[in-house]
Design a binder for these strands. Sequence first.
DNA 1: ATACCGTACCGTACAGCGTACGGCTCGGTT
DNA 2: AACCGAGCCGTACGCTGTACGGTACGGTAT
Lengths: 258, 258
Amino acid sequence: MSAKKASAADPARSLALLWGSHSKPGRSGLTVRSIVLAAIELANEEGLDAVSMRHVAERLEVGTMSLYTHVPGKGELVDLMIDTAYGELYDDVDAPSRQPGGWRGALEFVAARNWDLYRRNPWMLQIVDVRSTLGPNASLKYEAELRPLEGTGLSDVEMDSVLALVLSHVESTARAKANQARIQEESGMTDAEWWVSNAPILDKIMDAGRFPLASRVGQAAGEAYQSIADPAHALAFGLERILDGIAGLVEGRGRNRP
Amino acid sequence: MSAKKASAADPARSLALLWGSHSKPGRSGLTVRSIVLAAIELANEEGLDAVSMRHVAERLEVGTMSLYTHVPGKGELVDLMIDTAYGELYDDVDAPSRQPGGWRGALEFVAARNWDLYRRNPWMLQIVDVRSTLGPNASLKYEAELRPLEGTGLSDVEMDSVLALVLSHVESTARAKANQARIQEESGMTDAEWWVSNAPILDKIMDAGRFPLASRVGQAAGEAYQSIADPAHALAFGLERILDGIAGLVEGRGRNRP
DNA sequence: ATACCGTACCGTACAGCGTACGGCTCGGTT
DNA sequence: AACCGAGCCGTACGCTGTACGGTACGGTAT
């Protein structure tokens, strides 16, 4: 439901862990790496809720408190999980810029890869306090995603803004999709089923007199999506609008440097 | 850090509560309304983490379990908090469409109002499982925000998509801002201070050889924002691009119906 | 006036969480 | 052979949401 207290992860400690070599297996085979991998597996199999220090330790057949020898706390563990997940994104740092279709094709590729990442690791969207800790894979991601924007005439700050805009759009729609899936799983009801079972209540309540447009548009969208919303459609629709908007900016800059 | 279990709020029960009249004060003065208001006050003063059933009850000088007479559980309470917060948005259902500047001016107004809402109620961005439960204020919000889009030539589904795109952009940037503020508060360090204190570590780590663009652009953005990111700038920049993109769509539809 | 009863209220208890603290037990060095 | 630091972990504390069962009161029927 909400964020937990935890002890909020010391950023400097996280940085050291992220970039450290930590290759000494200890006498029970426990490693930072093995802990992080176990946590990610757990998150993907049973959701982020299941990732408690106790469960992670159980999966590794180790006492709960042993984890604290390798990881300062849960906050830092989550930081490590995130950077590890980013490692799935690109085979090499030029993957996006190799894409056809210029900067637009590259950004579409970037959006698709990030969307897939979230689809494969929905737990990433359940994290409330996302300290953007710059791990090695996050850095590579940033470099890889910026490269296709160089040479478009955009300033450095504009390149950053453009990328952030695309990424935040993907994250939003992915979060919507993950929420939808989670709710459906919890309630055991399809979105369409829910709609049918709650339509009578809604009809009585939201009379078309007070909210004519909301009724009409809501119904149109509901019929089109067979649901209250279609995140995949929102991703495509929004990305197109955003890229169109960016194209305007790029053309403007292009004219300044003919 | 992550989502909690809770019992996931029965949607039908939430709907009934949201639209119900619940005006019977009971013998200790406890009402659904008073509970929700206390919870919101608590969330704004001490953050969403502080909103536990025990704390809410304490603030109302009531036994913890008494809350459950009026509210089925914490999930439903959060639903009620959200719809109540939406009540702050518009004085009446035509506030956005009264705005000058056509649909574009109206959407800018909508974005600004939602941004302000999140700035005043940052706890709304800490909620992980946002079941979009259609309360009365949420419905009015939807109606009000759709109205300026009618007559632009967009289809009903397109109107919904356009609105969702703008709202999700505002939510993303507001979340970034709230996260930034929360981290700063927890660490007691300005973003700029953090940057200074961690720059030496980062320099050693992220050598400009491997990530030349990331280094250059990151530094440029850091200098421009005096921080790792500037959500207010991201809001304005992104909104402009998005509205430009929507303008293209609207013009296209306009030509179809001359 | 009396008896009754539904509902509001709430004390206790349970399972789960992150983690502080202190002790045990090894592997490697002297 | 003695030592010691580091890895490991059992216990305990304070926090969470809420199931359950009991109490006490306001309003109604007799």
